[in-house]
């Protein structure tokens, strides 16, 4: 069957479940903090719990990816993959810290950005892993 040759050509994305959870939690965080920003509300304490939840999901996804990498399926574009993974790992804690330093609505806006950026980058991580990158020529 062609599935075997296909699998060889495009490494399978190992973190389907974890990645989906990260995307969902990220979007929830973006929605919640986005509304707070629109209402000109500063960051409430409980938002940090959502950020922590996001970070746990991101760590889970990272472990799955690293395990798969050690297991032999490397991402087709390691440099970009590691850079994006670093951003995804840092996004929650970094914006929580950066947003905490801002009293007004923009403190919430900063965390909302993380909630938007993380899902986008998870999709990019998947593309970079499987080789379906925007660079186009990676498969060559």
């Amino acid at each position: 069957m062609t599935s075997a040759t296909l699998a060889a050509a495009t490494p399978e994305w190992p973190a389907g479940t974890a990645g989906t959870v990260v995307i969902v939690v990220g979007l929830v965080l973006a929605a919640v903090t986005g509304v707070l920003a629109l209402l000109a509300k500063p960051l409430p304490r409980w938002v940090y719990l959502v950020v922590a939840l996001l970070e746990i999901a991101v760590l889970w996804m990272t472990v799955v990816c690293v395990a798969a990498w050690i297991g032999g399926t490397a991402p087709s574009d390691p440099i970009v993959f590691l850079a994006y993974l670093a951003v995804v790992l840092a996004a929650g804690p970094a914006t929580a810290w950066w947003g905490a330093g801002e009293p007004g609505r923009w403190g919430s806006g900063v965390v909302a950005m993380a909630g938007l950026v993380v899902p986008v980058l998870v999709i990019r991580l998947q593309q970079v892993w499987t080789g379906a990158t925007a660079g186009g020529t990676t498969g060559a």
């Binding site: 801002e102 806006g109 950026v117």
Partner: peptide, 15 residues
């Protein structure tokens, strides 16, 4: 202010 959000987006784009 809004610059704080700009910093985040620019930082991501930079990486």
């Amino acid at each position: 202010g809004a610059g704080r959000v700009l910093v985040v987006v620019y930082a991501v784009l930079a990486v």
